[in-house]
């Protein structure tokens, strides 16, 4: 039982999703995109914003529909609703942010396969009201965003010598090619998990 449970529902969901039950470093969900999009900060921000919104809206919708969904097609309906929102995001990006849409390429469509979205639909939205499910989805997305952004900052800094596209380390900096490639995300993610889990255990220990 995490210490956050004593607060109000919304606040405890926020703290849980950002920290005690973080989708990336505690639940280890959404790892595929952690590897794929974190080598530059701006793509990471847009991708994680997309995931947050898709999770929030699909959780709210599924929660509202929950009573009507027959058990046999529950997951099919979940996938339908999730892909609906992801396609909407894709359409909006293509129409209003064509540059972003081009730089993200196929990644937007791949939001559908992000395990966090279906995980929240199954674990939370099924048994909670729509507004709270929306909040849960949004904060789960933010927890995902926080970790990915941290990894992206490190990867972009060492891999390109820049921060959000702005050169920081100067022309004499030799880029670490490994940081641009997927394996570096494995190392960084594992290190982040190690550090953050250790910290969590310490915090829990301190409360006892």
């Amino acid at each position: 039982m995490s210490p956050a449970k004593k607060r109000g529902a919304a606040a405890s969901i926020l703290v849980d999703n950002l920290w005690w039950n973080n989708p990336v470093f505690v639940q280890v969900l959404g790892i595929c995109s952690t590897l794929a999009v974190t080598n530059n900060l701006s793509n990471t921000l847009i991708m994680t914003t997309g995931v947050s919104l898709a999770t929030a809206f699909s959780s709210a919708t599924l929660s509202a529909m929950n009573k009507a969904i027959p058990a046999k097609v529950r997951m099919i309906v979940q996938v339908l609703v999730i892909s609906f929102y992801v396609i909407i995001i894709d359409i909006v990006l293509r129409a209003y942010l064509p540059e972003v849409s081009r730089s993200l390429g196929p990644y937007v469509g791949l939001i559908i396969t992000n395990c966090i979205i279906m995980g929240r639909a199954e674990a939370f939205a099924r048994s909670n009201p729509p507004a709270l499910s929306f909040w849960d989805g949004l904060t789960s997305g933010l927890g995902y965003m926080a970790v990915l952004v941290a990894i992206a900052v490190v990867r972009e800094l060492f891999g390109f010598g820049s921060f959000a596209g702005v050169p920081l380390l100067g022309p004499r900096w030799t880029s670490w090619t490994i940081m641009i490639m997927a394996p570096s995300a494995f190392f960084l993610l594992a290190m982040a998990m190690w550090g953050l889990k250790t910290l969590q255990e310490r915090m829990k220990g301190g409360k006892r």
Partner: peptide, 19 residues
């Protein structure tokens, strides 16, 4: 189950087509 799936699919696809 069949009716529900059909109606839900039709509704969501309609909105996608609209967008």
């Amino acid at each position: 189950t069949v009716g529900f799936t059909f109606v839900v699919c039709a509704a969501f696809v309609f909105f996608l087509a609209l967008a």
